[in-house]
Design a protein around this nucleic acid. Structure first.
Length: 570
RNA sequence: GCCCCCGUAGCUCAACUGGAUAGAGCAGCGGACUUCUAAUCCGCAGGUUGCAGGUUCGAUUCCUGCCGGGGGCGCCA
């Protein structure tokens, strides 16, 4: 269902592609240590007669410190094809790596079932610090994997029949962060909101509005929320259901737009379903499908024979009353995305309650002659809201849902975004409003932002005391050998990998996990390693100032990907 | 009945797209502030990763079945 993901750029194959045939000579070029080790392993494998390096070969940072600084599963993965026992192959691989006398590598050990563990001198982390600082916020963990490929991310797209609810905000933050990740990895991204401003729901909205204005009870199928009454008071138009509905939808949409921007979501395009129907795009799309012999008429309606394309059932495009269905509009819309506007790839973020629509969408896109691999649909699982034990719901028609605006007013935009990006989209989550409102320790945004505020505080204090940060070339980074300092550097080294993996798997939550870890490392460092002060040697102050700067860069990159602000003080 | 997602510590969630001894926060207990912000740090306790098989050198991760929860199966959107 989801399209082909981009490959990680750090695999052995990628390095070989970048640098041509394996040769020890490539190691003379300046490269991050990770790429050097990766290339070295590829070369060593080639020396051992394994030219074809499987994609599953990895160079990883082991979870256990006893397993060294870097570890590869190469021998485990290649053993069977090479007809050798994993530990034997690992031993040979280790010998070749030792003979290569790689930079920073102190020892090579074979462990467990056949891991090759590399132990480095801490100097490799000094190189990491230099890399981070040299790249800066602009370039560190930035990639050109997308090669400028144009991708559209469609998200939120909530019906303009009421304010956004908390679930919209969660999936909205998700879609926006996926867009940010794609941008950072070199894709050209367009954020789009599909406005369902037509059809029966707009009529129902109009009916509800007019009923309110007359002082009549709102119909059972109508919208009961208090916002309808507010709108009714402001409406001075005719007693026409459609006119009233469209008027209200417009007002509501303006409110939705404001809500989105309040949590840092800005769309490039608000695409109107009504405009599609009026422009004749639906008719064009139907004609396109007719020419392919995939539609016919039955019971007065026009059907897409989507079962021919893998759907579980056929779908109606034009109802017997002559109105286009939602699917028809959406297919015309997707035809516009792929064929008219020519996006290379489209990612739709829907709520899980739209699951029933997905199969027909894919079938329809295929029917239009578009490679379905270019379409990805991410379904955000449901958010259960609990308020101090009592369940809150998200029904617009019943009018008892929790508006996103209320949550943002309670806990702020940053906490809203960070909370929503804490867990995977595939994970249905439970949010206890009473707990979150309390702004207690439950709220992780403080933990992360406080770390950044401490950085800013160090910078302020340094300026007050006249401590200048001298050029990094003049700093002796080898004084950074406290476990807290090394932890921080190891964390910073991970960010590029985290960004690529988060982007490839459309999982911004990974960035959240990482930045919380960075905050933990920084708090530990802050507690144990004073930067300024009369008892700190000047050389140590200098090195630590650069370490703090690198941490600042890490926070800035990660928090920007999440759409969370990095405050100077708290 | 069929399809999708999930099931991990008391609670909310992680776990580097198959790696070695499954981690954080909160809640509980006990410690650390004359310091660049204690919204912090340190320690203790907490687990048969729903159950049973399978694939693999290796499974929370992949496959099958079952149990449980959520969502979906409209000429609604």
């Amino acid at each position: 269902m989801s399209g082909a993901d981009s490959r990680r750029p750090h695999g052995l194959l990628a390095v070989l592609r970048l640098h041509g045939n394996p040769s020890w000579a490539i190691l003379t070029e300046p490269m991050p240590i990770r790429d050097q080790l990766t290339a070295a392993i590829a070369t060593a494998l080639a020396d051992l007669g394994i030219a074809e390096v499987p994609e599953s070969v990895r160079l990883e940072r082991p979870a256990q410190p006893e397993h060294g600084d870097w570890s590869s599963n190469a021998a485990l993965v290649c053993a069977k094809a090479a007809g050798r026992r994993p530990r034997d192959l690992a031993a040979e691989l280790g010998d070749v790596l030792v003979a290569a006398s790689l930079p920073h590598v102190r020892s090579v050990e074979i462990a467990g079932p056949g891991f090759v563990n590399l132990r480095l001198d801490p100097g490799w982390l000094d190189d990491v610090l230099v890399d981070v600082v040299a790249a800066g916020v602009e370039s560190y963990a930035r990639f050109d994997l997308g090669k400028g490929e144009r991708v559209q991310v469609e998200f939120v797209s909530a019906n303009p029949t009421g304010p956004l609810h908390v679930g919209n905000g969660w999936w909205g933050a998700y879609g926006d962060s996926v867009a940010r990740l794609l941008e950072r990895c070199g894709w050209s991204v367009s954020r789009e909101y599909y406005v369902n401003d037509t059809g029966g729901q707009i009529r129902r909205l109009g009916e509800s509005l007019l009923a309110r204005r007359r002082g009549d009870p709102v119909p059972d199928e109508g919208y009961q929320g208090a916002y309808v009454a507010d709108l009714a008071r402001a409406y001075d138009g005719p007693d026409d259901v459609l006119v009233a509905g469209r008027w209200a939808a417009e007002k509501i949409l303006a409110n939705i737009q404001a809500t989105c921007s309040s949590i840092g979501i800005v769309f490039d395009e608000w695409y109107s379903q009504a405009s599609i129907e009026e422009s004749g795009a639906v008719a064009e799309m139907v004609a396109d499908l007719e020419s392919r012999g995939l539609v016919d008429r039955e019971d007065g309606a026009l059907w897409l024979r989507s079962t021919k394309l893998g759907d579980t059932r056929d779908r109606v495009l034009v109802k017997s009353d002559g109105d286009a269905t939602y699917l028809a509009g959406d297919l015309a819309y997707h035809r516009d995305k792929f064929i008219v506007r020519g996006f290379d790839r489209v990612i739709d973020v829907f709520g899980a309650d739209h699951h029933g629509h997905v199969a027909s969408l894919f079938a329809g896109v295929a029917a239009l002659g578009v490679d379905p691999g270019r379409l990805e649909v991410k379904l955000g699982q449901m958010i259960s809201l609990v308020d101090g034990g009592a369940a809150a719901t998200m029904s617009k028609r019943a009018g008892n849902f929790v508006p996103l605006d209320d949550l943002v007013a309670d806990i702020g935009p940053d906490a809203t975004r960070l909370l929503s990006l804490m867990s995977s989209v595939d994970q249905a989550t439970t949010l206890d409003l009473s707990v979150v409102r309390a702004q207690s320790m439950e709220n992780p945004v403080f933990y992360v932002q406080y770390a950044h505020a401490r950085i800013a505080s160090i910078e302020r204090k340094g300026a007050e005391r006249g401590v200048d940060r001298l050029p990094i070339d003049d700093a002796d980074l080898s004084v950074l050998r406290h476990p807290r300092e090394l932890d921080l550097l190891r964390r910073l080294e991970e960010l590029p990998d985290v960004v690529v993996a988060a982007c490839a798997t459309r999982a911004p939550a990974r960035v959240t996990t990482w930045v919380r870890g960075l905050a933990g490392d920084f708090h530990g460092f802050y507690h144990d390693c004073q930067v300024l002060g009369p008892d700190v040697a000047p050389a140590v102050t200098q090195a630590r100032l650069w370490l703090v700067e690198a941490a600042r860069i890490g926070f800035a990159v990660a928090l920007d990907l999440l759409g969370v602000h990095a405050p100077e003080s708290m």
